[in-house]
């Protein structure tokens, strides 16, 4: 590999890396709070809520992420058609003498990047939900009791007593999930996004050279290394007590 090749290779790969990183951080930012809310809902005393969330988690963890991605990107545009609905449904509502009209499209089309973020967030939210639920449930019951005896409300208990302890307990599995996510982003090639993986593959074909695969591997390795170091730092910070 000479300098000329590297010059041709790297800019394209960095372009792809940008997409990869965007999917990565946006998924994390959305799926972690989403997962936490799901975890709280799954602990709900209302049976129906509990059942709905459990089913959701079962579906999202039980089917391939690729299927979910295809469903959102290639499937939803035919949503209405599948059920024999017209392209747009118009609701005419007359309330208090005011005529209101809503239109709902039955053909739901997302651009590829948005579709990827939706599918990844829904999927990773389910995994994070289980991690957080297990974390909350492994906290001693006495913590809830003493908070209650001191007069903490539900949200004060969650925010000031349970969450800080949960974060510490769930850092290792969250770190695991995060590393998996870096590599799962490669799936977005399937909805015609040119991420690091796709850019690499294109270069290999273009240059008739295997080297870009090696370079891509190094990119992914560096990313996971940074994440590993980051989480190790967090674990140290939270393990002071």
């Amino acid at each position: 590999m000479d300098l000329d090749m590297i010059n041709k290779l790297l800019p394209v790969m960095f372009e792809g890396l940008k997409i990869t990183l965007n999917v990565f951080w946006m998924t994390l930012v959305f799926s972690i709070p989403f997962g936490f809310i799901l975890a709280l809902l799954k602990r709900s005393k209302i049976k129906a809520v509990n059942w709905i969330v459990s089913t959701y988690i079962w579906l999202l963890r039980g089917t391939p992420l690729m299927l979910q991605l295809f469903f959102v990107y290639y499937g939803l545009p035919y949503f209405g058609k599948t059920f024999g609905l017209p392209e747009t449904i118009i609701f005419d509502v007359n309330m208090f003498g005011i005529n209101m009209q809503w239109q709902i499209g039955t053909s739901i089309v997302f651009p590829p990047f948005t579709a990827a973020i939706i599918a990844f967030t829904m999927n990773y939210g389910a995994y994070f939900a289980e991690i957080f639920r297990a974390g909350i449930e492994s906290i001693d019951k006495g913590q809830f009791e003493s908070a209650k005896a001191l007069g903490y409300t539900y949200w004060q208990t969650m925010g000031k007593i349970i969450m800080p302890q949960m974060v510490r307990l769930t850092l290792p599995p969250v770190s695991n999930e995060t590393i998996t996510l870096v590599k799962d982003t490669a799936l977005i090639t399937a909805v015609s996004l040119v991420d690091l993986m796709r850019a690499t593959q294109l270069r290999v074909a273009d240059m008739a050279n295997i080297a870009p695969f090696g370079v891509a591997a190094v990119f992914y390795l560096v990313l996971t290394l940074i994440i590993t170091i980051g989480f190790r730092y967090l674990e140290k910070r939270f393990c002071r007590y």
Binding site: G142, Q143, S146, A149, L150, Y152, Q156, K160, Q165, Y241
Partner: peptide, 27 residues
């Protein structure tokens, strides 16, 4: 009422001082 438990149930992520100040400021 104030309660003291058999298993103490202090908040492990807070220092002794914070265990006593946080309920006052929060509740």
């Amino acid at each position: 009422t104030g309660m003291v438990f058999q298993s103490f149930n202090l908040f492990p992520h807070l220092s002794a001082l914070k265990n006593i100040t946080q309920p006052q400021t929060t509740v």
